[in-house]
Write a protein that binds this DNA or RNA. Structure first.
Lengths: 176, 176
DNA sequence: CAGATTACCTTGGCCGACCAATGAATGGGT
DNA sequence: ACCCATTCATTGGTCGGCCAAGGTAATCTG
């Protein structure tokens, strides 16, 4: 074995393993899951991420934009732009809130609602694919462990669901 | 309880649960994990995603860009632009490959190498935070289950590590 | 009631990620 | 030797995400 080979020598200590094998595996699995979801969503005419928005709209009826922001745990500007595109697509309708003139009420159109079965099919399809070969006990165990990890991370990341985001302003980003 | 309330009535059937609770939980956990990683990486002057690139460079020495693309499982254009920014930052050096005039050899600079302990600290810190309260058996179980899921998804998503991406061109994206 | 504060959304900028198309260099086939 | 297919990298476009700043409206306070 040569020491100056420009290719990974396979005996090199993996830097990833030195800082959290489970975290790395989690990121990897999530990435693959996202790719697989993106492929299926593409055939429905949706970009990855939009399905979450639509799910919330299907569940909740006319909602204030701020509720979506809080419930999805996204940035306000992200939601604004995403809704603009979804509105232009005809999947979503936006209108003023009579009770608050600065708020915006968002609602899924009939065409947007028609995507529901497709999106839910994508997710259940992915669920089935991901958990192939896992028995009921393994699935429950995975769900339980993911719940624990989520609870551990919830403290500082803010949960997407009910808790408002903690205002954690920190170091200024380098300009590179 | 009013039926026309614009707020989620909490008894509404959650659309997320109807299409894969584990998948949803996985996406949620991965998101929180990414947010937490991003916060810590910011203090090192890195954007989320760049740490993976640097890890590969620390492990492998001078590498062809195509190796990075395959090993990280990213798009070629993504790697190109990321490396341009990392080079402008001084974390990375790029030069021609004498063996192939169209290839580019990438290498971490000394300044880039100096980030290694910081990044590995971020990941191990995150690992510790995520797995708080989990015993060794639980951690091993989580790693095992994530490995199984990764194996299930590997078939169609292409693995980031050794396998080349499967060329899965599909439906044309909607223009919305 | 007037002024300051807060909440709600929008805009602009940046980066990671994808696809599509292009240009340059290599390699294989006849 | 030639042409053609493949590979390598770049550019341009789009979208999901974030942060920072700005503008309007509601609310809290003196």
């Amino acid at each position: 074995m040569s020491g100056t080979d420009p290719v990974c020598t396979e005996t090199t200590p993996p830097s990833a393993a030195r800082g959290g094998p489970v975290s790395i595996a989690l990121a990897r699995v999530a990435r693959m899951h996202r790719i697989a979801a993106g492929r299926r969503l593409k055939e429905l005419g949706l970009y990855p991420g939009q399905e979450m928005m639509m799910m919330r709209l299907w569940d909740c009826g006319p909602v204030r934009q701020s509720e979506l922001i809080q419930s999805l745990g996204l940035d306000a500007s992200t939601v604004t732009k995403m809704l603009q595109r979804l509105e232009q697509c005809g999947h979503v309708r936006r209108g003023p809130d009579p009770a608050d003139r600065r708020a915006v009420l968002v609602e899924a159109t009939d065409e947007g609602r028609s995507l529901r079965t497709g999106v839910e099919g994508v997710w259940s399809d992915l669920e089935q694919l991901s958990l192939q070969g896992l028995g009921p006990d393994d699935r429950a165990e995975l769900a339980r462990l993911l719940g624990l990890v989520a609870e551990n991370l919830r403290v500082e990341a803010g949960e997407a669901g009910e808790c408002p985001l903690a205002p954690g302003g920190a170091a200024p980003r380098a300009n590179c």
